[in-house]
Write a protein that binds this DNA or RNA. Structure first.
Length: 463
RNA sequence: UCCGGGGUAGCUCAAUUGGCAGAGCAGCGGGCUGUUAACCCGUGUGUCGUGGGUUCGAGUCCCACCCCCGGAGCCA
């Protein structure tokens, strides 16, 4: 079939020429003049194209008048300038082929607005809605911009493993990976499960981060980034958490914290700029129907420099704020959600990079500063809170070993990680960006469950 | 996991002190119209989340559980 995507038809002005499109019916409106209007969408653009189905079509009575929302058809006809308002072009059909009807009695989507909660229950059909379709296009644009950004800066795309045998990669519960029979696993003499008989000869899990492996490659290939799934078995029931989510983790040799922060800012600006250039119609939709501050927020990301403060300065600001915080804002306590939101929305109203946290509240691998803080950085954005977490890594063998010890971790498990400092160590930095949170930030969608095609959360893995 | 709010027609919701379970939308039938989430008339729809209990009588009151949503924590 010599078919065109609908988004390409919109750009045509060669009225009178032949055109073929295919997609799913959004609405059908019948005219007493003996013809019908069909709004057809194939997901290639936010807008549907209007098809005029003349009553003279051979299957007008038998097929066209039975078309309802969700039906799939192909249309061949003539491109015409639309005499009606609301669209510049339309298609006067000469032939309409029906691939599948969608029984309106049972098809869950109707012309009326459906709640996002309801759409989660029909995740296989929700990409046919305006909102979720737009989310999918934005998500795609952000993913593409991510690769383009890092490739342009000579970062090498690295595939880190999804299965790990380290049960101490970071905080958080991990999903176990096993081929043992859960009903009757082999036991050792003490009665414990004998994982030496498991597939990997030891206990294995789904990864919570590709960072440690990325560091190994950064200390050989200079600049790398990962872009893949990670898993957390936490029983988190919030609009910001998923059990399975994609993360982008750049890692760069000879980058200090300042280089790292600059990379993060450049990356976010690059993504947003690309989005505004390529998804104008989708963003306009989000701004109108989902969150009327989205466009202004995104524009500000591109136009204004990010605020950069230290943890100590953040504590000062929060301490002076008259915001009735529930949690204390004393030095040494971690920033709570309410604090992050205050900083990004009230205090600065733009992305804020907070650096140099107390070592006690941060991960073992972060580089220790002389004053007892670590070279960590979090990027906080309005509405979403923490979007990026990163640090300069501890490259000094003795300091790292001491940190592992102080965090109560088993140094033997990190033998290869320590090797990276034992042989040709170098300063390096990196960060992780939660992709779902980025999509939520970019669209104004409140819940990450609505920006991931088939979200996995506690008790939910239907599709 | 903790706190709070919910679960009633396909969808979104209502139902007074416990007293015949309703409306809008969608669907279907008809009318009207180069229409734009079209409009007008007519029309059907129930495991009231599940299981117990109180009562002459429970959507409504009590107990337990399940699920969903929001907030918190954990974090990206």
């Amino acid at each position: 079939m010599d078919r065109q995507l609908i988004k390409h038809v919109f750009g045509r002005t060669d009225f009178g020429s032949a055109v073929t499109v295919a997609g799913w019916v959004r609405t059908r409106r019948d005219s007493k003049g003996g013809f019908s209007f069909i709004d057809l969408n194939d997901g290639s653009s936010f807008s549907s194209i209007q098809v005029i189905a003349p009553g003279e079509l051979a299957n007008y009575q038998s097929d066209v008048l039975r078309l309802t929302i969700g039906s799939s058809i192909a249309v061949t006809g003539e491109l015409v300038e639309s005499p009606g308002e609301g669209q510049a072009v339309e298609i006067r059909a000469a032939e309409i082929t029906v691939y599948g009807f969608a029984d309106p009695e049972t098809y869950p989507l109707q012309k009326k607005r459906t709640s996002l909660e309801r759409l989660r229950e029909i995740a296989h059909l929700r990409p046919r809605t305006n909102t979720i379709g737009a989310v999918a296009r934005v998500r795609n644009a952000l993913a593409f911009a991510t690769h383009r950004f890092y490739q342009e800066r000579d970062f090498l795309y690295l595939h880190t493993p999804m299965i790990t045998t380290s049960d101490a990669e970071g905080s958080g519960e991990m999903f176990q990976v096993t081929t043992l029979d859960p009903a009757s696993p082999p036991r050792d003499l003490d009665g414990n499960v004998d994982y030496t008989q498991d597939f990997f000869g030891r206990q294995a899990f789904l990864t919570v981060s590709g960072q440690l492996e990325a560091e190994a490659y950064a200390l050989a290939l200079d600049r790398v980034y990962t872009f893949g799934p990670t898993f957390r078995a936490e029983n988190s029931n919030t609009r910001r958490h998923l059990a399975e989510f994609w993360m982008i983790e750049p890692e760069a040799a000879f980058f200090d914290l300042d280089d790292n922060a600059r990379l993060a800012e450049d990356y976010l600006k690059y993504m947003v700029r690309y989005l505004l250039e390529t998804c104008e119609e989708d963003i306009a939709f989000f701004d109108k129907w989902i969150d009327d501050s989205v466009l202004a927020t995104l524009t500000a990301v591109v136009d204004r420099p990010f605020e950069r403060i230290t943890y100590g300065e953040a504590i000062d600001i929060l301490g002076k704020a008259d915001a009735g915080f529930e949690f204390p804002t004393t030095w040494g306590s971690d920033l709570q959600s309410e604090h992050e939101v205050y900083l990004a929305e009230q205090a600065f109203d733009r992305p804020v990079i907070v650096t140099d946290y107390p070592s006690d509240i941060k991960a073992f691998y972060m580089r220790r500063n002389d004053d007892g803080t670590v070279a960590a950085m979090d990027v906080l954005v309005p509405r979403v809170g923490e979007l990026i977490g990163g640090s300069q890594r501890e490259e000094r063998l003795d300091v790292l070993a001491a940190s592992i010890d102080r965090h109560g971790l088993d140094a033997d498990l990190y033998w290869w990680y320590l090797d990276l400092r034992r042989f040709g160590t170098a300063p390096h930095s990196g960060f992780g960006l939660g992709f779902a949170r980025m999509v939520a930030f970019a669209t104004g969608m409140q819940n990450v469950r609505d920006v991931v095609p088939f979200p996995r959360t506690p008790r939910n893995a239907e599709f």
